[in-house]
Nucleic acid binder design. Structure first.
Length: 479
RNA sequence: CCGGGUGUGGCCCAGUUGGUAGGGCACCUGGUUUGGGACCAGGACGCCGCGAGUUCGAGUCUCGCCACUCGGACCA
């Protein structure tokens, strides 16, 4: 009979309590820690390493498309924030204010940036004069502050890390193309790096960004079938330009207002990553983002030659460009296996005396738990192949979850029933009226997620009010 | 901001009608182990969330506050 195992770092099963499972993974996988500052979190080295990899992937894509990085101030004078009416109304309730410098009260209080549109616009009003100055394709990596009432690791921090892109264009067409291009960059990151399938679409007027003319979004589905907004891209038209007096002289010597965009993706996506791929053993990381892609574990390490053999595998994988670690600590085999499962390391490479005799090693996949024995001669090719397989496996599993839990509905009652019984995305036709969104929220507890770019014709009328339908829309319960 | 729950070594928790704090894990030392969360022996670690009050005496009772957490509202 097997001896009862000590569950040193056991986590709550997601079926028992999804929210508890989530915070357990965040803390036990050493991604995050709580701090003495309410609502603010520490990204521990392992959590920050994931963010660094996301940064690396995104930053390269931004630069390929001609964007440059800048650094704006952290503080915004109140008068500047107030120049655009919708924008200030949207953000004022969650701004934190600096009122004193040392012991002196400031003449004008300063807002800790919740987002930096106003700073970019103020700057641009000084430097833009001619059509030759456009476009301006700026991005900044920074943290922003929003005084949230409740917080959760990654999903809602009072201070969070993100990137905010801000661009200025001569024409609306160009700005809209930029908005769409950047949304597609986010979708590419999600699908091809994070193995997260997304629904691309446009936000309704109710859900769009404060001050934007249009907001595009990518929507992801979590294990608990709730929705998570993965990234947003906004088209502002020339509203901000006019509010901030940004103008340029065009080729015909006419004064014009330029068109603006902004787009952002935050550490929140890491929360999405956890809730998309994680399981009851802990974190599961897609290989392209995993700080450690493979861990080499010597088995029966005290036996002659085992450690040297393991070190050999480690060196070979490192040379092959794999992000690899070796664990030659005194912990037991079982402890190490559980530890790297908790940390979500995609592949575990084990080698012991029996493997050495057969000139093989054992590779265990984190996503499926499947173990394969690999001849030592094929180590590098097999690891590379398996990492690809893990990525595909994770993507397909998540895509199936998304597809299996997206349901058409033809009445508010039906939509409500599906949400209560199954959760997920519910797609219906929609008339375009705010009142129907409010009704859906009040009666079925759902908000609109997006009007997908890929439309289907489900019916002729809006199921909520019965008027002629304008779009097919996705509804869901969101994080 | 509104409701519910929880605050006791690093973590999880026990603590009787109020009597001056305990266990498991983790940590440190030594030894034995090592193919899925090892074992033995020893050691160190506490402003019992904070502040008032009741009492001879408060982890325990009362009030206030704070933090975390789960729902809701609001929001990336």
């Amino acid at each position: 009979m097997a001896k009862e195992k000590k569950q040193v770092e056991q986590i709550t099963d997601m079926e028992v309590d999804f929210a508890k499972w989530y915070t357990d993974v965040c803390t036990k996988a050493e991604l995050i820690d709580y701090t003495s500052t309410k609502g603010m979190f520490i990204l521990r080295p392992y959590g920050y390493a994931i963010w660094e990899n996301i940064q690396k992937e995104l930053d390269a894509r931004f630069k390929e498309t001609g964007h440059v990085n800048v650094a704006m101030p952290m503080l915004i004078p109140e008068s500047l924030l107030q120049k655009e009416k919708d924008h200030v109304e949207g953000f004022a309730p969650e701004c934190a204010w600096v009122t004193h410098g040392g012991s002196e009260k400031l003449e004008e209080r300063l807002c800790v940036r919740p987002t930096s549109e106003t700073l970019f616009c103020d700057h641009w009003s000084h430097i833009v004069h001619s059509w030759r100055d456009l476009p301006l394709l700026y991005n900044q990596w920074c943290s922003v502050l929003r005084w949230e009432k409740t917080s959760r690791p990654f999903l809602r921090h009072r201070e969070f890390l993100w990137q905010e892109g801000h661009t200025l264009h001569a024409t609306a067409e160009e700005a809209i193309a930029e908005t769409e291009q950047q949304l597609e960059t986010y979708a590419d990151l999600c699908e091809n790096v994070l193995a997260m399938p997304v629904v691309r679409g446009q936000k309704t007027d109710k859900e769009k960004f404060a001050g934007a003319e249009r907001t595009y979004t990518i929507e992801c589905m979590m294990h608990d079938r709730k929705a998570l907004q993965g990234g947003t891209s906004h088209y502002f038209g020339d509203g901000f330009a006019k509010a901030f007096d940004i103008s340029y002289t065009d080729k015909e010597n006419k004064l014009q207002a330029p068109h603006e965009t902004s787009w952002g993706l935050s550490t929140r996506i890491i929360g999405g990553l956890i809730m998309t791929h994680g399981d009851n053993r802990g974190l599961v990381l897609p290989p392209r983002i995993a700080p450690t892609q493979a861990v080499v574990i010597p088995v029966a390490m005290h036996k002659e030659g085992v450690l040297a053999a393991a070190e050999g595998l480690y060196e070979r994988l490192k040379t092959a460009g794999i992000r690899v670690k070796i664990d030659d600590s005194e912990q037991s085999m079982g402890w190490k296996a559980a530890e790297y499962e908790m940390k979500g390391v995609p592949l575990r490479v084990e080698i012991g005396p029996k493997d050495m005799e057969k000139e093989q090693c054992c590779i265990c996949r984190r996503d499926s738990g499947e173990k394969v024995f690999v001849p030592l001669t094929e180590l590098e090719t097999e690891v590379v192949r398996l990492l690809e397989e893990v990525h595909k496996g994770l993507y397909e599993r998540a895509a199936k979850n998304l597809a299996d839990h997206t349901y058409p509905a033809f009445s508010l009652e039906e939509a409500k029933q599906i949400q209560e019984e199954k959760g997920g995305f519910i797609k219906t036709m929609w008339c375009g009226e705010l009142q129907c969104e409010l009704d859906m929220k009040e009666k079925a507890g759902m908000t609109s997620r997006c009007i997908p770019f890929v439309q289907e014709h489900l019916a002729d009328t809006c199921p909520i009010c019965g008027k002629p339908a304008k779009h097919m829309i996705y509804w869901g319960v969101a994080y």
